[in-house]
Nucleic acid binder design. Structure first.
Lengths: 349, 349
DNA sequence: TTGAAAGCGCTAACAC
DNA sequence: GTGTTAGCGCTTTCAA
């Protein structure tokens, strides 16, 4: 039998013909070779090799209903996407873990409100086995979309939208923001600091509000004037610090909502001639190497394992996918997980 | 007829039943509705709506052999990926243009040498209609992979591997690095500068070697000691500048291979008390806003339309895909394109 | 203009 | 163990 029209890719059929076996046998070999006798396996392998056979993805997906691909959804206005080191680390973790599970990362980039329809079609069309999304702002429409198209999804960060703990509950991975904040404040207390201020992040991001809550957990009757509002940028940290100093010149410690704001605060502190940590102790959050280790003095901060959180998101999703159709509750949501934080002592407090 | 097991997604069949038409008609409507009478179209549309029907991607791909997805391949060691603003802009352009063509961006992240096998399988498996890759170093194995699995691919940046103009030629999109460099040097000449130095980028990246070539085109008998080697980082620009000053203290202009190196050079120039542009005129390349506009003085530089290059890569690929199977030569490679550059005058020269 | 029917390439029962 | 066969959900001739 002559080769089928050259240029056309060989199919299972062609391999079977060449190896002198049935399609089923080739399929078995291609999928691991369990239950096929050695010599046959080798014969088939050789045919695959010679023909340069590569399984057709669409055909396989059509019957298995699995894709070997997972979407990572990025909402552009929220993220400085590429430039945000936090995000880069998380995606790196996701990418690595996905590779370990033999799955492909499909990046979906949402650029505007109109893109959500496209995303919904894509997710619903069965291109991917599941999705990974990030919960940034409270009014995101992603949760309702993934619910509508019924694609298993794990969120990064604790969702803050209304009903996130009830009807619209979704599995997520988040750091122990509240616990980490408590540890930071307690540490400052233990250093003998009595007037501890806080620079809070955006009010509509749970990572920020949880840290504020942790601060308040420890300082039950904290002076409201010791809390200033920032937005996670360096600039906002500087502004907040100036405000704080104006309102409470006697403060002796600052717990900033993240390292970037801590770095801005540090700048202002030094401009005013205040020594860190002698006059004012300073603690950040994140332990972003490019920031926390670069300041002078380097920051004492609360570390979270960002890459690990990315990997965890994937594991959670995979668990949900694999149990699917299994004996347990078929649509049991994968539980959320909170990863521990760790106080890293450097020179600023 | 009762709904089929709830939870199962509706198929074309279900929509057809509901609308009281054949599958073929539903298919036509879903794909634009050409050749179907109005009332029927509406009836089908309604059924689609009511059932929440979303076409199954795998089934469709199996017959059409088209995917609506394009891979963007990123080789990790080469790129500082996420942190590189150049890259971010290019991917943004790609993403936008892909959306306009109703195609999905699938990001393939190559982390190590072992990943190439996985990439080859993915590309060959028909997950995507084509690929976009970046030509960074001369010894990349990507070109041979895309050739082996026969997936239409457009490169970003002129490939420099051996045979890139012959056997292994691939379509690419690149800026007119050589022409831009010539313009920069001529401009410096026109300003009355007589001893113009160059800080070159990595020897194994064509963007760097092309710029060096442009410099030499204009300064045919340039003093070899007026060329210093850098690697596109700011730090290397500073080092190269120091070297240059050591060797040729009398230089009166510098054309740096990119803005980052120009910025490093500027720092050294100022440390040595040299005024820019009075004592030494300085020109960069790229017009990276975050760099060129932030220096003091702001950089005169050669601008390239990075986002536009990304969009162009997509258009080239789409052209190749659409002509495929058409009347013309079936596997005519899409031609490469060189995009123009433009000298942007600021204060440094 | 609409419908019937034949696959696309593969996996998974089910026979042998 | 290995082969036979019936689809997976869709598009696309080809008839009507």
């Amino acid at each position: 039998m002559p080769d089928p029209s050259p240029g056309a890719r060989p199919t299972l059929e062609a391999v079977a013909a060449r190896a002198g076996v049935s399609r089923a046998t080739v399929s078995r070999v291609v999928n691991g070779g369990a239950g096929v006798r050695r010599p046959l396996v080798e014969r088939v392998r050789r045919a695959v090799e010679e023909l340069g056979y590569i399984p057709n993805h669409a055909a396989r997906t059509l019957v298995t209903r699995r894709n070997g691909a997972v979407a990572v959804i990025i909402a552009e206005p929220e993220f400085r996407v590429f430039s945000d080191p936090f995000f880069e680390q998380q995606v790196r973790g996701i990418s690595r873990e996905l590779t370990a599970h033999d799955s492909q990362l499909v990046l979906l980039w949402v650029e505007g409100a109109g893109d959500y329809e496209r995303i919904a079609r894509y997710l619903g069309g069965g291109h991917v086995d599941g999705a990974l999304a990030f919960s940034v702002h409270d009014d995101d429409e992603l949760p309702s979309i993934v619910r509508r198209v019924q694609v298993p999804t794990v969120f990064g960060g604790r969702p803050g939208w209304p009903g996130a703990t009830g009807e619209l509950a979704v599995p997520y991975v988040d750091a122990d923001n509240r616990g980490g904040a408590r540890e930071a404040v307690r540490y400052l207390l233990a250093q003998g600091r009595g007037r501890i201020a806080h620079i809070a992040g955006p009010r509509d991001q749970t990572s920020a509000t949880d840290r504020l809550a942790g601060y308040r957990d420890v300082l039950l009757d904290a002076d409201p004037d010791l809390v200033a509002q920032g937005d996670f940028t360096e600039e906002s940290g500087a502004r907040a610090m100036a405000e704080l100093l104006e309102r409470r010149p006697g403060l002796d410690a600052v717990f900033a909502g993240n390292d970037l704001m801590a770095s801005g605060a540090l700048r202002v502190l030094r401009e005013r001639g205040l020594r860190v940590p002698e006059d004012v102790a300073l603690v950040g959050f994140d332990d972003m190497a490019s920031v926390a280790e670069a300041t002078d003095p380097p920051l004492t901060t609360v570390r979270q394992d960002i890459e690990g959180m990315g990997r965890l998101m994937v594991r959670l999703l995979m668990r949900a996918l694999h149990q699917d159709g299994g004996p347990g509750a078929p649509d049991a949501a994968p539980g959320s997980v909170i990863t521990p934080t760790e106080l890293v002592r450097r020179a600023s407090a």
